[in-house]
Simulated assay, not measured.
Amino acid sequence: MTATVRRLTAEEIDTDGFLALLGEAAGLDTDALIRIRDVEFPTMTVVGTVDGSVLGFAAFGADTHGEDRTELHYIAVAHEARGTGLGSRLVDAARRADTTRPLYASTDDDAVDFYRRLGFVVADAPRDPRWPTRQRYDCLLDPLGEPAELTLDAYRAHARRYAQRTPATPSPLVAELAARLPVGSCVLELGSGPGRDADALEAAGFAVDRTDAAASFVAMQHDAGHRARLLDVRDADFGGPYDGVFASAVLLHVERPRLGGVLSRARMATRPGGVMIASFKKGDGEHWSDAKLEVPRHFVLWREDALADAFATAGWTDVEVWDSSSPHAAEAWITVTARNGSRD
């Protein structure tokens, strides 16, 4: 089973097939199920997989006991999709809704072993008046951790796979930067990865300081005969001064509240008049995706106005922001260029 776990639409939830699946999750009569669908679900996140019909779903949200944790309220997998790992993927989606909080679920004898297999700590719980004859259990799973750190762990563990699945064609940002800086300029690359864009920048006549927060990528650069160093953009001094800062598809992993600090440190590492160029995924909110690596990575999505404000607030001037999506691409992208107009 490789179908994507995604947020279900109202139309997919409002079907007889889904109501039957909800009945397997809740074990209640039709009137109670309709109330759950129409009253409770609008306050929750409902995700699932669809292949003609909904094969499985999970509904989660705020904890009903007032605890600081995510509660998995309902989960079910259709009979034909059982044994495929879909149930564990649905639990993982609920857990990743907020990776800094524990995940809680209440269950009975029919499903308690499922939660035990996934690593939940299980304890006896008081009986629920909705199911007065059933033994109940409280199930709790520890937080995963900070999204950016989990994403970095994915790169650390799968650097070779990332390199193999990255197209050889350099990012369009290389040509954009080359149009804004003279040959011979010194460029700091944030998130060099396997080195594709650094190679292109050097071929264009720039001196590149290759950096990455994943030691596996730094080792890959060393093996290829390049100098490279560890640099985590979230909390490090970038060094410098540089004529330019290049950040292709890397700052999209930085948590939204921390981007301003990253942009400020990038500006402080740049000479007056120097240039920064960066790309971001376009959209609203944030999400996890296992595309390309087949392990989840966390992405923060941005809109043009918000990025322009973030760069300006960090002290950058001459900020230009545009939609740089490729024709027919599955995802939309934004490119930002800016100059360090400060003399500090």
Rank of each mutant, 00 (worst) to 15 (best):
A175V: 07
S53N: 11
D38H: 05
R6W: 13
R101Y: 09
A179V: 07
R101L: 15
A228L: 06
G145P: 07
I277N: 00
D232C: 13
P170T: 03
A125W: 02
V91A: 10
A207H: 12
E71W: 04
M276T: 13
P126T: 08
G283F: 04
A310F: 08
R101P: 07
A10T: 14
E176Y: 07
R234E: 14
V336G: 03
R95V: 12
V245C: 06
L72A: 03
P102R: 07
E320N: 14
V39C: 09
V121Q: 15
T84M: 06
Y115D: 09
H79S: 15
V112T: 08
A228R: 02
R134C: 01
I34W: 10
V254P: 06
V183N: 05
F280G: 00
G315T: 04
G23I: 03
A3Q: 15
A148L: 11
T84D: 00
S279N: 02
G87V: 04
R82W: 04
W316Y: 09
L293Q: 08
H253M: 06
F311T: 07
L118W: 11
R136K: 08
D16R: 12
F299W: 12
R265Q: 13
G48P: 01
A62I: 11
T45R: 07
G285E: 07
A111Q: 10
D243A: 06
L55F: 02
A332C: 10
D124P: 05
Y74D: 08
N340V: 05
